[in-house]
């Protein structure tokens, strides 16, 4: 006689619950920090109808309360329901791939590096390096991808923002 068990049980279920509870914990910390900051607001010497702390304090209590509820829900509801996506999320959003994470980290790093480089080099140079770096991180290889395309994009951006809109690039 063969017996069937529910598919999600044991360690996998516990891990999923903790994963679902994690953002609730982060927001709980943020709410607590906001409460601390709100209570550190200096009160004015003149009398006011309401304290300047009232609005941020109310928001902090709201975040703390809802975060606790979120954590509780993560452990009470089934792991699938607790991690379900919202209405405006991608239906086809797949699991994160290792190469995808590397690409995102690469893009962030390239943007930060560009921010630093821009202080020292003219936009036409730093922009070219930036766009070439982004293309490389995204998988571009060869002269067309790493030189011609970045040069074209940099010139278009420079003409549009720098020359036409007079943004000091």
């Amino acid at each position: 006689m063969v017996s069937h068990h529910p598919p999600v049980q044991g360690d996998l279920g516990v891990a999923a619950r903790w994963r679902a509870a994690a953002p609730g914990v982060v927001f709980l910390v943020l709410g607590t920090v906001l409460l601390g900051l709100a209570r550190s607001i200096e009160l004015p010497t003149r009398a006011l109808a309401v304290s300047p702390r009232i609005w941020p304090e109310a928001l902090a209590f709201g975040i703390i309360g809802l975060s606790v509820l979120q954590i509780v829900l993560a452990f009470v509801t089934t792991p699938r329901a607790a991690t379900a996506k919202t209405a405006d999320d991608d239906d086809e959003e797949g699991p994160a791939s290792r190469s995808g994470i590397v690409r995102v980290v690469g893009f962030v790093a390239a943007t930060v590096a560009f921010g630093l480089l821009w202080y020292y080099l003219h936009f036409l140079v730093s922009g070219l390096v930036f766009v070439a770096a982004l293309t490389w991180v995204a998988g571009g290889r060869g002269i067309k991808d790493l030189l011609l395309f970045p040069a074209g994009v940099t010139v278009v951006i420079y003409v549009l923002f720098g020359l036409l809109l007079r943004v000091p690039l």
């Binding site: 893009f107 922009g127 982004l134 995204a138 991808d145 994009v153």
Partner: peptide
Amino acid sequence: DRFLWTVILA
């Protein structure tokens, strides 16, 4: 993709 992502981010 590699061009589209780059253009959007830039």
